[in-house]
Design a protein around this nucleic acid. Sequence first.
DNA 1: CTGGTCGAGTTGATATGTCAACTATACCAA
DNA 2: TTGGTATAGTTGACATATCAACTCGACCAG
Lengths: 183, 183
Amino acid sequence: MSTHMENLYDVLVTDTKWLDDREARAWRAFMAMQNQLRRRIAFHLQQDSGVSETDYEILVHLSEAENGRMRAVELGAATQWEKSRLFHQISRMSDRGLVTKESCGNTRKAHVALTEKGRQMIEAAAPCHVGHVRTWFVDALTPDQLDSLADISTAILDGLASDTACAGLAACAGDDPDDDCDG
Amino acid sequence: MSTHMENLYDVLVTDTKWLDDREARAWRAFMAMQNQLRRRIAFHLQQDSGVSETDYEILVHLSEAENGRMRAVELGAATQWEKSRLFHQISRMSDRGLVTKESCGNTRKAHVALTEKGRQMIEAAAPCHVGHVRTWFVDALTPDQLDSLADISTAILDGLASDTACAGLAACAGDDPDDDCDG
DNA sequence: CTGGTCGAGTTGATATGTCAACTATACCAA
DNA sequence: TTGGTATAGTTGACATATCAACTCGACCAG
């Protein structure tokens, strides 16, 4: 085995740039915080208003849309979910009477609309959810930290967006509102 | 309806302290970042080394333990998972030959141990995972931002921990190492 | 020793998420 | 028009997460 081969071996197998203490501390704390914060907020949202985190996300987008109504593909773009996850979620919510699925004449466009019950659910859940976010997120941080976290988040998002090598990581795209069906 | 009643009504129904622009910006950016970062890293980890995010978490803890072996309850404490999630995950990994479940004589203690295959998996996956964390997390931030995020994370974690009103939000506790079975 | 409680471990039912395949429309180009 | 491609929508199989109930050893009080 030549010196050349040993160098190649080093490069391929042992030359990983591991995280130093500062980096590892940030990463581990961040991951732990993320997990626990999500779980806490989701748990209490469910307890207090009977709405899951995923229900809530759908309901929020619909309630902010005109007439509480959106095309499926727009919902997909807003949530960044895979289309089949969205489909199953909408089906379940439809079964529970929170939304309705409306297809549009002979075109293929699928619309999703809030029902009266769905609107009542989101209007009851929203103050509750905002309260939790305030308690465990906003109030835990100084105003400076809050701004700093927003900047950090957008920096990471920019990095993710600028990376093109991600075929296979699908989420609904959602251009083309192009909404001709009634109103 | 008296003025008194109207005030009460206001307090109960309309007096939610909604998020202002700064707060909403931070919260939304944070949530979006969280979702996308996790998804990206998990996706590429799976692609490059055939290990899911959850597999990885179990394997890391085991590989850092003495002899690649831990009590189930310790693993639960380390991961902060519910015990039945942990059980199912371990069962699946055991089916795939990554770990073994070892019960301890006639005592009730359950141990989980890395197999040779499991160790190979984690040793192949770790450099890959660290690379992704570096690319999309560490390198996207300045050193100051990294420290700031660590502080922010611990501040939020402290707030969560100091809140006692969370019966029902179960995760494995894990005191009492008390480990007498072989070694 | 006896009984009682506690918590680790296990189990299966159910809810949710992911994946690949498929259908049908929209759209473009020849 | 025709054909081809892209994408929205749908479906079912499978993987994973959550929940409630159960088993059984550990431990303590009497």
